[in-house]
């Protein structure tokens, strides 16, 4: 039997909202340590990796490892029947379940839904836990804003790191521009900008993916960008007390 109860069901809704335009069908993996998900977009440019640890749930039980194939679109239809303040419980009964049950609980109502599961043949990529040569922490809303602004000018956005900070730049048909974000150690943790740069990087990415990734900014006030030259970038949103959502994006490489 598998059971996972989110005290804050709105959090689960935010996670689904954050990934819904990146991936269509996903395998949700559950085991004794928690729930995870790894899926790639159809063009193999972006990868979503979610980890939710059992300790972060109000209630968690998983006797046997389980793979649940879900359509994100259908999952969202069911989640629309829940309130943002509901507690949400996911549950399966059988060893090889064909449905995933949802209980939405508020002060005055309890709703039950069953979502049909699918069998998905999805390859899991072994993404190594590597050291990155530049790691930047900055406010997630600031990152969202910069991507939106620069995305107006060109479809590719450049990111350059140095000991002084991080610079975003674009060069398009209409002209070019850059935004430098200064390092600060303000007392407000959500406004802090930190750069750990062992080796500077200069990378280029398709901005439309960033604009999709930025839907995850509702999960955390800070975003962590981990980069190495000519390697996929990782954008991480820490989900407080529960785990993290990591979004990987392949760069455009200078030929």
């Amino acid at each position: 039997m598998f059971e996972a109860k989110f005290e804050d069901g709105g959090l689960f809704k935010k996670i689904v909202e954050a990934i819904k335009e990146l991936v269509k069908n996903v395998n949700l993996e559950a085991n004794g340590t928690g729930i995870s998900l790894q899926a790639m977009d159809t063009s193999h440019v972006a990868l979503v990796a979610l980890q939710l640890n059992e300790k972060g749930f109000k209630k968690y039980r998983c006797e046997k490892s389980l793979t649940m194939g879900l359509s994100i679109e259908n999952l969202q239809k069911i989640l629309k029947c829940s309130g943002n303040d509901d507690q949400i419980t996911l549950r399966t009964q059988d060893e090889e379940p064909t449905t995933l049950s949802f209980t939405f609980e508020s002060k005055n109502r309890i709703s039950e839904f069953q979502l049909n599961l699918m069998s998905l043949d999805q390859e899991q990529l072994g993404v190594p836990d590597t050291e990155y040569s530049s790691v930047v922490r900055m406010p997630s809303n600031e990152f969202t804003k910069i991507c939106r602004e620069l995305g107006n000018i060109n479809e590719a956005i450049g990111i350059e790191t140095s000991k002084e900070g991080i610079k975003f730049y674009v060069k398009g048909d209409i002209g070019e521009g850059q935004v430098s974000v200064k390092i600060n150690d303000t007392e407000k943790p959500e406004e802090r900008v930190e750069c750990e740069v062992d080796e500077p990087v200069n990378l280029s990415f398709a901005v439309r993916y960033f604009n999709l990734f930025n839907k995850a900014s509702a999960l955390s006030s800070q975003v962590i960008l981990s980069m190495s030259q000519d390697q996929p970038l990782v954008i991480e949103y820490i989900i407080e007390e529960m785990g993290s959502l990591k979004l990987y994006l392949a760069p455009k490489i200078n030929d």
Partner: peptide, 14 residues
């Protein structure tokens, strides 16, 4: 000239 790196190939070839 830029080309778009493919994530699947990148991680497979590691």
């Amino acid at each position: 000239q830029f080309y778009q790196l493919n994530l699947k190939e990148f991680y497979k070839n590691l």
